[in-house]
Design a protein around this nucleic acid. Sequence first.
RNA 1: UGCCCCAUGGUGUAAUGGUAACACACCGGUUUUUGGUACCGUUUUUCCAGGUUCGAGUCCUGGUGGGGCAACCA
Length: 569
Amino acid sequence: MEHAGLDKGAEGNEGGTARRNFIQQIIDADREANVHEGRVHTRFPPEPNGFLHIGHAKAICVNFGLAAEYGGQVNLRFDDTNPVKEDTAYVNAIREDLAWLGFEWNGGEFYTSDYFETLYGYAVQLIKSGDAYVDEQSAEDIAAQKGSPTEPGKASPFRDRAVEENLTLFQEMREGKHAEGSMVLRAKIDMAHANMHMRDPLMYRIKFATHHRTGDAWCIYPMYDFAHGQSDSIEGITHSLCSLEFEVHRPLYEWYIEKLGIFPSKQREFARLNLNYTIMSKRKLLRLVEEEVVDGWDDPRMPTLSGLRRRGYSPESVREFCDRVGVAKRNNVIDVGLLEFALRDHLNATATRAMAVLRPIKMVVINYPEGQVDMLPTVNNPENPDEGTRDIPFGRELYIEAEDFKVEGVNKKWFRLAPGRSVRLKSAYIVTYVDHKTDEAGNVTEVHVEYHPNSKSGSDTSGIKAKGTLHWVECTHAHDAEVRLYERLFNDPSPDGHKGQDFMEFLNPESLKILQGCKVEPVLASAQPGQTWQFTRLGYFAADSKYSQEGKPVFNRAVTLKDGWKGKG
RNA sequence: UGCCCCAUGGUGUAAUGGUAACACACCGGUUUUUGGUACCGUUUUUCCAGGUUCGAGUCCUGGUGGGGCAACCA
C-alpha cells in the first residue's frame, strides 16, 4: 500500500527510539522471550450486524498495523454466533470498507460459524470433564440466581446433574428436541465469584433461526464468550486485541482455553475511540437512519466509513488520524478537529485546485473586449509541481463570490473587493473597482471593474499591490453544479452524554445546506464520483457518488480550508 | 459498599527510577497570486497525602476522581 506523503515509518522499531504504545511494548517483550517463536498474528473480528464506523477504523489500524509492523499476519473473522442479527449484506459492506481503507487480511478470511462443529466438540469435552451442565431453568430464574456484584449467586438445581445425562440432553438440544429457551448449556465455575462473568456463564442457547451461512444446520449457537477465545486459539492468534469493556471477560477467555488445553491466545484490551460532536453507538446511528434524519448509513455526515468515503475522506487520512490518536487504556474523547486536520493535511498535498463560485454575482470587466475569451494557465497544485498546469478561460464577464464584495463596513482588515479597492483575480489580472448595481432590496447584483493589462499573472509589471486574491469563473464557459455544505451533525460536544436528554435534541439544524446554481469551471463538469478537489479558497470537495450524473456533478464539501481570517465580513 | 481498569497542558499520546516531550487546538509573527500551505515564536502539564530512593510522572500504601462488570447480545 502506498501512503503518499504520509510516511509513518513502520521501520526503525526494532530497539529504536520510536514511540511505543503499551501493546507494542507487550509484543516486544513477548518476542524478546520468544513467545510463539516471536510470531505476531492478530485478527479483526466484527459481528456482521451493521456498518463499520470511525471507531472500528481504530481497531482495524491497530490490528492490521501491528501485523504489518512485525511482519506477521492478520485475519478477518466475522463473529457470527447470533443468527437473528447477522446478514451477508453486512459481510459484504465490511469487506468493502476494509478494502477501501487499503488493508488486506493476509492471514485469511474466517467465520466463527466455520467452527460450530469444533466448538460443539469442545462443549462435549467440558461436559465430560464435569465442567459444564445443562440447565433447564428459565432465563429469569438464572438471572435471579446470578446474585449481584455484592452478593454471591446461588447454584442451579441442575448444577450437579450426571455427566451422562448432560451429554444426552446437550445432544438432544442440538437435535432440536427442546424448545427455544427451555434449556441452556452452562460452564460450571463459581457462583460466588467476584467477577460476574465467572458465575456459571452460558455456553450455548437454543435458537431456531436461519443462519446467514449455516442455514438451518444448527439450532444451538455458542455465546460470545464460548466462541471468541477458542476461535482465536484455532486460528493461532497470538495477540487478541479488543476494547476495554472486555477486560472482565478475560478470566473467562483464559478459563476456557486452559480447561480445553488449546493454543493459548492472549487477550489485551485498549480504549476505544470516542469523538466529540459525534455518536458512535450502532443503535443510535440506526435511529438517525430510520427516522430519516440522514440520507442512509452512507450519509456524508455519518461517522461510518461509507459516510466518510462519500463525504470525501481519503483512506490515507483516516489511517493517519488513527495513528495520531494513539493506543492506550485511558478513556478518551478525541477532538473531531484532529480528523479534519488529517484530511486537510492529505488533501492539501494531493488534491487538484479548481475554481468554483458557490454564491455567484456577476463581475463585468468593462475595459476587456466584448466577446473575447482568452485561455490562461493555472497551476493544478502548488504543493506538487509535477501536476503541471491547465488552461482556464477568462473574459469580460465573470462570476465571483457574493461575499467577496461589500460596500459597507470596509476597514483595513478587509482584503477583498470594495469601492476604491483593487484585487487580484487568481491566475489572471488585477482589477480595480469602478461601480456596482443593486436590486430594489439593495443586494449587489453586478460589480464593474477595470483590469490592468500589465498585471497578468506571471508577468506582472504593473507595480500595483493587491492584498486580496479572489477566485472566479468565466460566465460563458461556466457550468452549473449543486454543492452540498456540511457541518457537524450535532451542536453539542457530547450529544449522548446528557442524562435525561435524548441525543436527538442536540441535532444541528444547519448540518446540511444545499446550494443550487453554483458556477464551476469547465474541468469540474467532468468530475468523476468520488474524485476530490480543492475549490480555491473554499475547501475540499468530492463529487457525490450517489447524486452526481454524467456532466452534472453534485459536490460534497468534505471540509473547509482552515480559516485564518478572524475578521467579520 | 464487591471485583477489574484508568489518572501527564484545552484534547490526545510519549518519557520504562535520571533535563516532562510530540501532535492537534489556541494566541502572535514572517512568507504567500488560496485570509490556504510553509516557517518561526508565545501560553498551558504529572489528581491528593504519605512512604522507598542520592533522585519518583514512573515503585509502595492510603485516599479522591473517572470508566467498566449482574443480556439465552457481541
